[in-house]
C-alpha cells in the first residue's frame, strides 16, 4: 500500500465512521441499533489500521517520519480513545468528536498528498524512533480528546447555564493521561538526542515548543490543584491544545525553524 491507495482507504474509513455515527445516533431511540452502529464505526478504524500496517510493510521503515505519516497514526488512535471512553466510562458523545478529528486529519492528507519516500536518514535509524514518536502521538491524541471534551462542556454551558455535574472529569482525566505521555515523549526525545546528536537538549525550535506545550499542561495541573473554577479550567484545556498543534505542525512555518534538526519533510 502506498499513498496511491490512500484515498480509497481514507474515504472508506470516513464513510463507515459517518454511517456508524448516524446509526449510533438513531440507537438513542432504538436500542437494537447500538451494536450495528458500533460495528460500523469500528470497521472504519480497522480499515485505517490495516492500511497503516500495509503501508509500513511497503515502506520498509516506520511510517513516522513525515507529518502526513503521523496524521495516519492520529486517525487510527483518536477514535480508539473515543471508543475506550465509551466502553469504560459510558460516555458516548466523545467518540463523535474523535471521529470528526480523525476525518479532519485524513482530509488534510487528501488535500495535501504526502510524497512516498522509503529513505530514512541515519539519525532516525534508532531504537528510540518508534517509542519517541508513538508516545508523543498517544499524548497528542489524548489531549485532543481532552480539548474536545472541554469544548463540548463549554458549549453545553453556554448562555450562563452551569457546567453539567461532574462533566469536567472526562477532560481532566484525559489531560492527566495525556500529560504523562507528553512527559515520556519529552524525556525519550532527550535521551535519543544525546545518542544521535551528542546533547540531550539544544533548544531546537521543536524542543522548545514541546517544552512550552508540556509547561502549558503542567500549568493546567497546578491550576486544577489551585481550585480554579471549572469553567476557567475547561477554557484552559480547550485552548491549550492549540499550543500542542503549534508544537506538532506549526513549528515548521516559524522563522525559528530554519535550522531545526526536526525537519524531515521531503515534500
Amino acid at each position: 500500500m502506498t499513498w496511491e491507495e490512500f484515498p480509497f482507504a481514507a474515504y472508506s474509513s470516513m464513510a463507515f465512521w459517518a454511517l456508524g455515527s448516524l446509526v449510533s445516533l438513531a440507537a438513542l431511540k432504538k436500542d437494537s441499533l447500538a451494536m450495528p452502529g458500533r460495528v460500523l464505526m469500528m470497521t472504519g478504524s480497522v480499515i485505517m489500521m490495516v492500511f497503516l500496517v500495509l503501508f509500513w510493510a511497503a515502506l520498509d521503515r516506520p511510517p513516522l517520519r513525515t507529518l502526513g505519516e503521523t496524521r495516519l497514526w492520529y486517525a487510527v488512535l483518536i477514535p480508539m480513545v473515543g471508543f475506550l471512553v465509551e466502553f469504560r466510562w459510558k460516555i458516548g458523545w466523545l467518540k463523535y468528536y474523535c471521529m470528526a478529528l480523525a476525518a479532519l486529519f485524513l482530509g488534510i492528507n487528501l488535500m495535501a498528498p504526502d510524497v512516498y519516500d522509503k529513505s530514512l536518514m541515519p539519525a532516525l535509524q534508532s531504537v528510540w524512533f518508534v517509542p519517541h514518536v508513538v508516545v508523543y502521538l498517544v499524548g497528542y491524541v489524548l489531549l485532543a480528546a481532552s480539548s474536545a471534551a472541554a469544548w463540548h462542556l463549554l458549549f453545553r454551558a453556554r448562555g450562563g447555564r452551569g457546567l453539567p455535574e461532574g462533566g469536567e472529569r472526562v477532560s481532566h482525566y484525559l489531560a492527566l493521561l495525556g500529560f504523562v505521555f507528553l512527559s515520556f515523549g519529552l524525556v525519550f526525545g532527550a535521551l535519543w538526542a544525546k545518542e544521535a546528536w551528542g546533547h540531550y537538549w539544544t533548544w531546537d525550535p521543536k524542543e522548545t515548543w514541546a517544552l512550552i506545550a508540556w509547561l502549558a499542561y503542567l500549568g493546567y495541573l497546578h491550576a486544577n490543584a489551585m481550585n480554579m473554577s471549572s469553567r476557567t479550567l475547561q477554557w484552559y484545556l480547550g485552548l491549550a491544545f492549540l499550543v500542542l498543534l503549534v508544537s506538532w505542525f506549526g513549528v515548521n512555518y516559524l522563522p525559528s525553524a530554519q535550522n531545526s534538526v526536526h525537519s524531515y519533510q521531503t515534500g
Partner: peptide
C-alpha cells in the same frame, strides 16, 4: 512558557 515562546518563535 512566555519566555520560551520567544525562543520558539525567533531565530
Amino acid at each position: 512558557a512566555f519566555l520560551s515562546f520567544f525562543g520558539g518563535i525567533l531565530p
